[in-house]
Nucleic acid binder design. Sequence first.
DNA 1: GTTAGACAGTTTCGTTAGAACTGTCCAGAG
DNA 2: CTCTGGACAGTTCTAACGAAACTGTCTAAC
Lengths: 190, 190
Amino acid sequence: MTERRTMARRARDELRDEVLDVAEDLAVAGERPSMPELARRVGVSRQTLYSEFGDRDGLAAALVLRTTGRWLDGIEAALEGEADLHAAWVAAVGAALTEAAENPLVKALLTGYSAVPSVFGSGSGPIVDAAAARAAGYLRRVRPGAADADVRLAAETAARLTVSHLVQPPGPAQRSATDIATVVLRVLGE
Amino acid sequence: MTERRTMARRARDELRDEVLDVAEDLAVAGERPSMPELARRVGVSRQTLYSEFGDRDGLAAALVLRTTGRWLDGIEAALEGEADLHAAWVAAVGAALTEAAENPLVKALLTGYSAVPSVFGSGSGPIVDAAAARAAGYLRRVRPGAADADVRLAAETAARLTVSHLVQPPGPAQRSATDIATVVLRVLGE
DNA sequence: GTTAGACAGTTTCGTTAGAACTGTCCAGAG
DNA sequence: CTCTGGACAGTTCTAACGAAACTGTCTAAC
């Protein structure tokens, strides 16, 4: 059963996206988005927001979901864009690091540190898990024969090391990327 | 030239240790140690503390140094206590994780999160570096033939993964230990 | 060398009053 | 049937401001 089928899905999705856009702008600008402020800027009533997102936490969760989803999509695209496994990981880790460095919201989510007010209560755990899961999926696809334990270990290692290098960069991102790619390949035994 | 040669070194070292003990107790108890409070508890004048540690930051730095030194000593002892390389790493990572879990100060230093008031301004960076350096030294000692790049990569990977697992434990510490040990061995090509 | 006390400048604390926000309800307009 | 504007109690953030505590330094005395 879908809830609320009256309004065209298009319009509802556009509204959600617009609200999240504004919320993201505010958060990045260092203000913590309030429901009245969002309603005012989007040009909609406060109640519409509550109807759409449930409550403030629901709105925050939606923003987190969208942000991390896009981040993971970018990483996966980089991964798929290269044929050689090592090159693929270099590209993916590079993308993950630069994207996170540029997007304050992603960085805040991953590092827990926030120049951004805490819109979120999540912590980095779930995101790292999601990243590891996608990485494992990719590895299984390109290396169907690999042992499952190795795939999982390699994927989790990659995710954790990437966050670690984001929090505490030991050098240029490119170097981090090649280092992590090397570790992944070695864990896989290649 | 040593500064201040009048007082027996013994007495001075004991004083420093006692002061740091008290400071650690206070910090762990959730209070942030103040110079007057420390002086009162140790039974010495405020000025003696300033003479000994320079200023409050100097005292904090001394505590950080002592705490991390002990932590690293514990890890190195675990490392040396096993003959098999894999077993050595399991023991070392296990020691690092349990010690950090039990010592709030170590945990605060490594995770940046603090139930403990920030006595320190350091951040986890220097400690991870120190841990990686010691790990690399150990590896060079037991595997003299290994390529230096591999040794450094393995050591840094071990240090980063250990902190990562401390911040976000995916399961029991024992499992983290074996996972990380496996990664280290694979990075070394064993 | 150490101590107690004094000192100015800064940081923290505790209180208090005002404003803003959250979440919910409802009557009314399109 | 949905959106709106307004009203509502309860909570949370903000600003202010005086009191208290702390920092770092100096000095006279032991």
